[in-house]
């Protein structure tokens, strides 16, 4: 049996760089190729294609010839009242769901971190919504909100059409959004809580700090990296939400729950303006990256 041993270049010396790409580098790339090709073909390729489409007047038709239109779609987007209305709804939705979801999940995680009876069962029950597909969750909540047969009206003794009311539809879907995303936030926060060194609490206790003080001065600062990570991810997931809201309201009533992704979907699939829909997607991606970048930068600066 023979074995090939590749010796790493000593530190500080670039090894075979002077002779071009090293054998090790070549082999590394070759081994990565089976994983890279699908990523390039099915992820990066379509992404670049989509970005390209955003600068054309592409339509999903057989008769239309696509041409390059430069920034025309972007200019249209800036003056599109429907888009801004949808953007505002998306901002309210994603910020509300992310913040409220975090607060509820933090409360639940703190509770589940205590030595409770049946803690194991409670932890399992808390993650049940995570196991459910968004479509099933949407259908289930549609039944809860049903004006005649819904359990909510039964409990409250009201006669409200929650998902069709202009003022209540958005709050109603925000509640569903919170319920849907809470388990994963809870699990992540719970994991973070379990990583907080016990000695810190003991020291705090000895210094006479009450539970609120211990929470504020020990738990929260210790959790900060976890909080930053999960709220950032939640924000991205929430602003990109589609399936849940599509099943619940399809953007109605009167566009009151038309999130940006629903708006883009309608442009692409209902009206078949593929170029404009791509520009919507691109613009949303840039906005999300900008907001996220700013948030992360601030949080990291405070952490330091």
């Amino acid at each position: 049996m023979t074995a090939t041993v590749t010796r790493a270049a000593p530190p500080g010396r670039p090894g075979t760089r002077s002779r071009g790409i090293s054998r090790q580098t070549r082999e590394t790339w070759l081994l990565m190729l089976p994983a890279l090709v699908p990523v390039l073909l099915f992820s990066v390729g379509p992404l670049l294609y989509g970005i390209g489409l955003a600068f054309t007047d592409a339509r999903n038709t057989r008769v239309h010839e696509t041409s390059f239109v430069g920034l025309e779609n972007f200019t249209r987007l800036l003056g599109d009242d429907e888009f801004w209305a949808s953007f505002k709804i998306g901002a309210i939705w994603s910020v509300s769901v992310t913040v409220l979801q975090f607060l509820a999940a933090l409360g639940l995680a703190l509770l589940l971190n205590e030595r409770l009876r049946f803690r194991g069962v409670a932890r399992v029950l808390a993650v049940v919504p995570w196991a459910m597909p968004p479509v099933v969750i949407g259908l289930m909540w549609k039944l809860v909100y049903h004006p005649d047969a819904g359990i909510l009206n039964d409990l409250l003794g009201t006669d409200v059409n929650w998902l069709a009311d202009f003022s209540l539809a958005l709050p109603a879907i925000i509640v569903v959004g919170i319920w849907t995303g809470m388990p994963q936030t809870t699990v992540v926060l719970l994991a973070g809580l379990q990583g907080v060194p016990k000695e810190l609490y003991e020291a705090g206790h000895m210094d006479g700090a009450g539970s609120w003080r211990r929470f504020w001065n020990i738990t929260l600062p210790q959790l900060r990296p976890v909080i930053v990570a999960i709220t950032s991810l939640d924000f991205v997931w929430n602003i990109n939400q589609f399936g849940l809201v599509y099943v619940l309201t399809q953007g109605g009533p009167g566009g009151q729950t038309r999130l940006p992704m629903l708006f883009a979907y309608e442009e692409a699939f209902r009206y078949r303006f593929a170029g404009y829909a791509s520009m919507l997607g691109l613009a949303m991606a840039i906005v999300v990256l900008a907001v996220l970048g700013l948030y992360l930068w601030r949080q990291m600066r405070e952490t330091r």
Partner: peptide
């Protein structure tokens, strides 16, 4: 041509708002 978009973006919200007395 364009009825579908008129229906979704304009007519449905406007008619719903009118019928909701808004």
């Amino acid at each position: 041509n364009g009825f579908d978009e008129w229906e979704t973006k304009v007519a449905a919200p406007v008619l719903q708002e009118y019928l909701a007395n808004k």
